[in-house]
Design a binder for these strands. Structure first.
Lengths: 119, 119
DNA sequence: GTAACTGTACTAAGATAGTTAATACAGTTA
DNA sequence: TAACTGTATTAACTATCTTAGTACAGTTAC
């Protein structure tokens, strides 16, 4: 479900956070779906429950999940703020590529190649 | 020259590293130009010379600068590996946006708008 | 009501990374 | 020689990450 890489520079809680963000964004886990419990996921990943708890707390504060005391955490629809964040990052990267002399047509063609299989 | 933000999550040496990478990439500092000395820049930014030294060491290992003992560090042309790194990041971000349902035409138009003023 | 789950909160301890400080040494230049 | 350059090393401090252990409140099923 979530893949940890200890050679990755990011802290574990960040990898869990990023992993779920990507999965919700991609629709791999859908709205309303139940998240694994803190203790269950900690067991699966062989890490401390506190670390999972921290990731879940951030996920909730960013609007990706809601938690109900005693019941569990449930997936929300991707928050609107995420779209803005992604677009901002897109502009940054695209800007650097254009500054390096890459043609915008080349980037557009690149998107068309990689992005046809999902509408 | 380089702007530090202590609220930024990134460590200082990383901000210096990223800052020079961006400036060299954008052509703000050109090939052959001399970098400020380790001690000089440390003084300007009011941080320890070791921190600058670490940033410069990474910059050299990535191929952005060359250092000559006793003379100083000098800017190189952007390494080819950087273009590959940028394209990889571009694909990642674009992929996430497409997964969120953003039309590739919209992203292409966005690039055209922001990228016309630099050829 | 009890048992077994759920999330949440808290404290303490250890490990690691980042940063600073203080030296020291070698090459370059005037 | 003096004043700069980069480089290396050691020690100490700090913040962050992670773990461990415990505790408490809500939910669900028996």
């Amino acid at each position: 479900m979530i893949h940890l890489d200890y050679r990755d520079g990011r802290p574990i809680y960040q990898q869990v956070l990023d992993g779920f963000r990507d999965q919700i964004r991609a629709g791999i886990v859908g709205e309303g779906e139940r998240m694994p419990s803190v203790r269950e996921l900690a067991g699966l990943l062989a890490i401390n429950p506190n670390t999972i708890q921290r990731a879940y707390r951030e996920l909730e504060s960013e609007g990706w999940i809601v938690t109900v005391a005693g019941k569990g955490s449930f997936v929300c629809a991707p928050p609107a703020s995420d779209l803005e964040d992604l677009l901002e990052k897109f502009d940054q990267i695209a800007g650097k590529l254009l500054a390096r002399g890459v043609a915008p047509e080349h980037l557009a063609a690149r998107m068309a190649k990689g992005g046809t299989d999902h509408a």
